[in-house]
């Protein structure tokens, strides 16, 4: 579904990605992990075409993403920080994105799930961080795309919304979608992820199941396994 071949990216003199190869050919939940500044968001933004890599190819369903912007119909993306135009109302934002991407009825159901009805006529600039994140989640899950990318989806969510988010992710997984998640909350990752993609210094350091990671690092629990990799590489 997603194929990344030898991806390189520099920001100024700072090498962020040094040859990333990643292939995802089946559905499931993939957690992209790594220390701050390891290039997680850069990889995600490269898939979305927001960052233009120096070299390397990215293919989605065997088509190079450079050719056309229409491949983004197949991706639902939840950005890390929900930056919305502040003078727009929530309902107008939903309407606008639907206008750009096509019709869907799922938004009503999602608005109900996240209890956003009373916020629909409020301006986005006046919303709290958590509510913004809920709007963000509704926008992301509104369309039924085969690939979902979630960049720090848990930021600012209250416990109930977090449970609903997990249910939503599980539901989408059942449909055979490929879901990429980045998060620093290890308990969340351990709970949802099928596979770990660990990025270190702009390269893929490890890829496999949580169990395989534990055996590799000879640690009993997941959090310590991650911590061990990090201390070994003194990041």
């Amino acid at each position: 579904m997603v194929e990344i071949i030898d991806l390189h990216k520099k920001f100024g003199k700072n090498n962020v990605l040094n040859g990333v190869d990643l292939k995802i050919d089946k559905g499931g939940i993939f957690a992209v992990l790594g220390p701050n500044g390891s290039g997680k968001t850069t990889i995600i933004k490269s898939i979305l075409g927001m960052v233009i890599p120096e070299c390397g190819t990215i293919k989605l369903f065997d088509t190079d993403i450079k050719k056309n912007s229409d491949y983004r119909f197949k991706i639902d993306y939840l950005p890390q920080i929900a930056n919305f135009p502040s003078n727009l109302k929530v309902i107008e934002l939903f309407r606008m994105i639907k206008d750009l991407r096509g019709k869907t009825d799922r938004d009503k159901e999602l608005i109900k799930t996240f209890k956003l009805e009373s916020f629909l006529n409020k301006k986005l600039g006046t919303l709290s961080g958590g509510t913004k994140q809920k709007v963000n989640i509704v926008l992301t899950f509104m369309f039924n795309s085969p690939i979902i990318i979630l960049d720090e989806p848990t930021t600012g969510l209250d416990p109930i919304s977090l449970i609903r988010l997990k249910e939503l992710i599980a539901e989408e997984k059942q449909k055979g979608k490929a879901i990429l998640i980045t998060s620093h909350i290890m308990s969340f990752v351990e709970e949802v992820a099928d596979e770990i993609v660990f990025i270190l210094e702009g390269k893929i350091y490890f890829r496999g199941s949580i169990k395989a990671l534990k055996t590799k690092t000879k640690q009993q629990d997941f959090e310590h396994a991650i911590a061990k990799i990090l201390t070994e590489h003194s990041v």
Binding site: M50, S69, R72, P79, F84, P85, L100, R101
Partner: peptide, 16 residues
């Protein structure tokens, strides 16, 4: 001022 708007649009299927 429309930086946020632009970032939102960039992830959508719209040409740059």
């Amino acid at each position: 001022n429309s930086k946020e708007f632009t970032e939102l649009l960039l992830a959508q299927p719209v040409k740059r």
